[in-house]
């Protein structure tokens, strides 16, 4: 099952009774404040164009009020767009009929929510089968799938507990198991880990990355946490006031912030965990060979650790196939890891 990419094109959302009337004015430069003060409408999303890669994790990041939750709800059309399109496998979700939309939601998407949104009157296992139950899948088969995923997220033995007998972290594991049991191509995660304690959050991120390595679904992950975005995102789009202000890989954003706002954002980032060796390496190998060899895709932190533990100042860099492609010095690695003073 190959998961495909999602194309969000020219998407606008203006909240209010006559939203579509103001699309043109917004297109021509009316700001959010102006729209609100003059016409009493709220600009939710403006000119969103994101090409979300298939089988990868697309992070949408922004602070509260930036429109990120609005954006993710357009992918399964829990919110109607004012104008624009969201294409998946050549179909525009925004133009689907009611019944097509139900089918799309049942078979192509699954969603994990910030506040878990579990059914409080159902046990863990009955929550987990929910998607399959809605699809009308045989009960025994649904339970088999559910048990598998409950086990996968580490909740074996809790099948017959009710959600409010579980901690927040465990509840969100149920949320994740429920979404995964649906076996959909697209996984929508709306600030899925934001309500969890930092340690549990990191733990859940690892669970997600593990599962993703195996399944390669198209994941859209919403967060307000840059560290989370950088850890999970194959691609990141940053939203402010309903507009995309920069998108690219985490490394691209950290190395070339588009404006002062983003630069301010990334100031606190641990760059060693974001920047990869190949971005700063020299294309000439170490003269006379080197004791330490690292991979081009490794992060600087890993590279620096490898060199310092061997008490070496230089290391050779290999590509995925093991060919020697260049070198890196400990000094260069540390220089790149330190946050630049200006910006």
């Amino acid at each position: 099952m190959a998961s495909h990419g999602i194309e969000v094109k020219d998407l606008y959302k203006i909240f209010g009774p006559h939203g579509s009337k103001y699309v043109e004015s917004v297109r021509n430069g009316m700001t959010k404040t102006e729209l609100n003060e003059k016409h009493g409408h709220v600009l939710g999303l403006k000119d969103i164009n994101i090409s979300m890669p298939g089988g990868k994790i697309q992070v949408v990041m922004g602070l509260s009020g930036s429109g990120k939750s609005t954006l993710i709800r357009h992918i399964n059309r829990l919110i109607e767009p004012t104008t624009g399109s969201v294409e998946y496998e050549g179909n525009d979700v925004c133009k689907m009929s009611k019944s097509d939309l139900l089918e799309f939601r049942r078979h192509k998407t699954a969603m994990v929510f910030q506040k878990f949104a579990l059914l409080p009157h159902r046990t863990v296992i009955d929550n987990t089968v929910y998607g399959l139950e809605i699809q009308g899948i045989d009960k025994a088969e649904a339970r088999k799938q559910a048990v598998k995923w409950i086990d996968r997220v580490g909740l074996s033995g809790f099948e017959d507990h009710y959600p409010n007998q579980l901690s927040g972290g465990m509840q969100q594991r149920v949320g994740l198991a429920r979404a995964l049991t649906n076996d959909a191509d697209i996984l929508l995660m709306d600030e899925a880990f934001s309500a969890l304690d930092p340690l549990i959050r990191t733990d859940m991120q690892s669970v997600l990355l593990d599962i993703q390595e195996e399944l390669q679904k198209t994941i859209v992950f919403i967060t307000h946490d840059l560290d989370e975005a950088l850890r999970l995102g194959d691609r990141i789009a940053i939203l402010r006031d309903g507009e995309v202000i920069q998108q690219g890989t985490g490394q691209e954003i950290v190395l070339n912030p588009a404006d002062a706002y983003i630069a301010d954002f990334i100031k606190e980032v641990n760059r060693g965990r974001v920047i990869r060796v190949n971005t700063i390496m020299e294309s000439t190998p170490v003269e006379g060979g080197a004791k330490v060899e690292i991979h081009a895709g490794d992060r600087l932190e890993t590279a620096a650790q490898a060199m310092s533990s061997q008490e070496e100042a230089h290391a050779n860099v290999l590509d995925d196939s093991g060919t020697l492609i260049g070198s890196i010095s400990l000094k260069a690695a540390i220089n790149a890891m330190v946050t630049p003073a200006t910006h």
């Binding site: 699954a110 949104a117 059914l119 929910y130 998607g131 809605i134």
Partner: peptide
């Protein structure tokens, strides 16, 4: 009935009838 739970049912593609019987009535009981 909690709007978040209803939204979850929507996201999983529940029809109005399914929403009524799997979410609304049980929680309203």
């Amino acid at each position: 009935v909690d709007k978040d739970v209803l939204e979850a049912a929507d996201a999983f593609g529940a029809s109005p009838r399914q929403k009524l019987f799997t979410v609304q009535l049980p929680l309203a009981l």
